[in-house]
């Protein structure tokens, strides 16, 4: 049996788990190709106009897999942490995809809660059943996949750069190089090192969050906010770049919260959608880098008091 896995949204975070799980079940795993112009165009054609870019791209991947698999995984990720959510569009992702694209194959849409191993196993059991009747095999595949995920370390932590920035945003914007137009590469070429949130300890994130009047109930809002504020406060980075999609309700809130907290600390928001031109992005990151360089020179010229 061929199981299709679209390379969109949180694939970038959870691919070790998803791929190992279905491979171990004995399925043929088909992953869609890297995001490209064709996939984007398909997504724009099929998804509702008002959807954000990452959702459109996911639609594109789903269309690309439509005739290549017997069953497709549309992860309905409800919660990663207890009492926190991701985005309403994640909870309704299977509905969006199956109602917008005709002739979809059978799909795996069971809700996913990852905050305990037990909850996740519940998903594995019902999803696995669609591939094999062998419960022992499912358990085995689950354990392997779980372990594979634990051993997988995503994240970027560049060393030996004079300038460093914190790269903040949802994982699918940071790690999909078509969407961000090779942002990390470009920054590196400009002599800018990048750090992402995976290296900030959960405790430090919580400390920052506790300063808020209200605890954000979105996982990525919590993590991104905690990371950006912490990295700027401890001067691990010289600036913050936030990569966001137009019309992302979550980003619009996090960006404001961070900006309000870090004050005059250098902050650049890059917004992407299907019309974003590469030239515009290039100019903006170059200008931002120039500004950071000037600041560093100025700061080292000013004698420190006290």
């Amino acid at each position: 049996m061929k199981v299709g896995i679209p390379k969109g949204l949180l694939y970038y975070k959870y691919h070790p788990f998803l791929i190992t799980f279905f491979k171990e079940l004995g399925a043929d795993v088909v992953v869609s190709e890297d995001t490209n112009k064709k996939i984007l165009d398909l997504g724009v054609k099929y998804a509702v106009d008002e959807a954000c870019l990452p959702i459109k791209i996911f639609h594109g991947h789903a269309v690309a897999l439509r005739d290549k698999c017997d069953i497709i995984v549309i992860p309905r990720i409800m919660q990663i942490k207890k009492n926190e959510y991701i985005c309403p569009k994640f909870c309704g992702l299977p509905e969006m995809v199956t109602n917008s694209i005709e002739n979809m194959p059978l799909s795996i849409t069971e809700p996913i809660y990852t905050f305990t191993k037990k909850r996740l196993y519940r998903w594995a059991k019902s999803a696995g059943k669609k591939v094999t009747g062998n419960e022992f095999k499912i358990k085995h595949a689950f354990l392997k996949a779980y372990e594979g995920q634990l051993n997988y370390n995503a994240g970027i932590l560049d060393e030996n750069y004079d300038i460093k920035i914190a790269l903040v945003g949802h994982p699918y914007n940071i790690y999909d190089n078509f969407v961000n137009m090779n942002l990390v590469n470009k920054l590196n070429k400009l002599g800018v090192g990048v750090e992402t949130m995976e290296f900030t300890h959960e405790l430090l994130i919580s400390l920052e969050i506790n300063n808020l009047y209200k605890r954000p109930f979105w996982t990525f809002a919590r993590e991104n906010y905690g990371f950006a504020v912490n990295a700027s406060k401890e001067k691990r980075v010289d600036g913050i770049i936030y990569i966001s999609s137009f019309n992302c309700g979550i980003d619009s809130v996090i960006i404001e919260l961070i900006k309000d907290k870090v004050g005059s600390f250098p902050f650049l928001t890059l917004k992407v959608d299907e019309h974003t031109g590469e030239a515009g992005i290039d100019t903006r990151i170059e200008a931002f880098t120039d500004m950071l360089e000037r600041r560093i020179v100025n700061e080292s010229n000013i004698p420190t008091h006290g």
């Binding site: 008002e50 309403p88 569009k89 309704g92 509905e95 979550i250």
Partner: peptide, 13 residues
């Protein structure tokens, strides 16, 4: 309203 996340899901359904 423009950009309303849950209603974009309803709109696709």
């Amino acid at each position: 309203p423009m950009g309303c996340m849950p209603e974009i899901v309803s709109k696709s359904i």
